[in-house]
Design a binder for these strands. Structure first.
Lengths: 129, 129
DNA sequence: AGGGAAATTGACGTTGACGTCAAGGTAACG
DNA sequence: CGTTACCTTGACGTCAACGTCAATTTCCCT
């Protein structure tokens, strides 16, 4: 109990499967310690996993996340890289807002159709002649 | 010019590729007229395509759309089927709302991080130790 | 020492919605 | 009649993010 978790404990703790953890490792998103052939996840690895899961909630792809993590792992205080990271985040935010607006629109439309009588029914009826 | 469009004209008119149209046909979403081996899209086919594209904007899967279209093509005024269609739409609306709420939350979080200084920067720095 | 639980690597499978050739058929224009 | 543009079918490829075996180790407990 040296502040490291086995893969099974990680699964329980973060609600992910072992396959997922190995997959992230293969994709170079995380590097657990090796004790023999077994994996052990220390604080750093767990912090990275948290960020990965967080990034996913924000809708970043795993590749986006890898790049973001890499930028910081490599040369944290580099101003240029810092700005690029910021830009990536702003960009993603823009996408998210756009996506939400579209979704809002679609929701409003669908709601109205449902209110107007019968879902897409009127529309579908029209198509069926 | 008998109120039918060739596949190429359809592509231009609806901003889809020929592959997409053939794919929809293969999935039994649309049935263009055949003139020899060539396809011709009449008003009905075009109406169906519009509905398909519309359904996609609502986030329905092609399979959902096929089922919805089928229900109405087959026996439009069947009360049971009508209710099932309605239920599908309500269900989908629920999903959309849930998705939007999640998105709103994520947007708020990301915005705050950006405001707090440096995107996911603080977080990523922490992970890099 | 034995035996079940937990881990390992490797490799192929899945899902959805098409993309991308390849190898022709056909139709319209001059 | 030729050529060029458009169309056809068929089949395999792609992308993301894992799932699902299978065949072995390795660990922990009694």
């Amino acid at each position: 109990m040296d502040d490291v978790l086995t893969i099974g404990e990680m699964c329980a703790a973060y609600q992910v499967t072992a396959r997922t953890l190995r997959f992230y490792e293969q994709k170079e998103l995380i590097w657990p310690i090796r004790q023999g052939s077994h994996r052990l996840y220390d604080r750093k690895a767990r912090a990275r996993l948290q960020l990965i899961l967080r990034g996913k909630r924000f809708g970043f792809s795993l590749e986006d996340i890898r790049q973001l993590l890499d930028m910081y792992e490599r040369e944290g205080s580099n101003q240029a890289q810092l700005e690029r990271t910021y830009a990536v985040a702003v960009d993603r935010l823009g996408q998210m807002v756009a996506q939400r607006d579209e979704l809002d629109l679609a929701i409003a439309e669908l709601k109205q159709e449902l209110a107007e009588g019968a879902a897409m029914i009127a529309a579908f009826k029209a198509a069926a002649e």
